[in-house]
């Protein structure tokens, strides 16, 4: 009898069990049974899913190795290029020294950089100066630069060293700030002066100057305070007063002075006392 109706009987049993589980679904025994069922089935599914995850991680690791290999190749090629550049630079420096000796002029000063963090700003003096905390002692008059998009740009100059070693930086926007500059495109030289606002002025340009908005203004390197070719800013406007003998250009500083957090202070290195100068 049971054999004949085995399927129906078994289905009845399953139905009763299901009904009991549903009727007493809030019961602790049913909840425990559900959890037991969950954990009973976990190993079979999670083993495979875990293996897939493992394979996925292998793939990610392989991709990382490929990327690392690519980077290593890039660095290697850059390193070789740097080696060549260094050799070329050394050769040029030696040649420069020989030429300077022959002509009897002193060689250009070198610079060493000290990093410093902006320590404080004075709200009453926002466009004029800020205080920095240099890691090593610096001298008054040293140039201060920062990096913008991977390029060194002028920030200002060390104006004052405080007794606790902090330095007050006079920004290029300060009216007392002045530095020699030239326009990259034309080579024309002028003097960049602060105006106390966000923009600065490039003064003393000849009246027939071809300067245009967008032109790049860089340091001329005169006076050995700033190294040459440091970006100061870009021309935004050209002012040519009627009948005046010179032109002026309004320059927007390349350094975002309101955002500067770290700076480099460039101190000139002393020339080698052993250098001979031909009279």
């Amino acid at each position: 009898m049971f054999q004949r109706h085995r399927s129906a009987t078994l289905f009845g049993v399953y139905s009763l069990v299901s009904l009991a589980l549903l009727a007493w679904s809030a019961n602790r025994v049913v909840q425990s049974l559900k959890l037991s069922f969950f954990y009973l089935w976990s190993p079979s599914g999670s083993a495979v899913v875990g293996s897939l995850d493992q394979w996925g991680r292998v793939g990610q690791g392989f991709a990382k190795i490929l990327r690392a290999d690519q980077r290593a190749r890039d660095f290697e090629s850059r390193w070789v290029q740097d080696r060549l550049d260094t050799a070329r630079l050394k050769s040029l420096e030696e040649e420069n020294k020989r030429m300077a000796d022959l002509l009897g002029v002193s060689p250009s000063a070198g610079f060493h950089a000290t990093t410093a963090r902006v320590w404080a700003r004075d709200p009453a003096d926002w466009f004029h100066s800020f205080l920095v905390n240099p890691g090593t002692p610096v001298k008054e008059g040293a140039a201060v630069i920062t990096m913008e998009s991977g390029r060194p740009v002028v920030v200002g100059q060390v104006r004052e060293i405080l007794p606790d070693g902090k330095a007050r930086i006079l920004l290029v926007t300060d009216p007392f700030s002045a530095l020699s500059a030239f326009v990259t495109r034309t080579g024309e030289q002028g003097l960049v002066e602060g105006r106390g606002g966000a923009k600065i002025l490039l003064n003393y340009l000849f009246s027939d100057s071809d300067i245009r908005p967008g032109d790049e203004v860089v340091t001329a390197g005169l006076g050995e305070v700033y190294p040459p070719h440091l970006l100061i800013g870009h021309v935004t406007d050209v002012v040519a007063p009627l009948g005046a003998s010179s032109k002026r250009a309004v320059v927007s500083p390349a350094a975002r002075l309101g955002f500067v957090r770290e700076v480099l202070i460039l101190s000139p290195t002393s020339p080698d006392p052993g250098d001979k100068k031909i009279p």
Partner: peptide, 22 residues
């Protein structure tokens, strides 16, 4: 197992799949 892993009440899919087999 589907009930235990899913959000349906424990026993619903158990009974329905048994019904499908039957």
């Amino acid at each position: 197992a589907l009930d235990a892993y899913g959000i349906s009440a424990f026993g619903v899919q158990g009974w329905l799949l048994a019904l499908a087999g039957f």
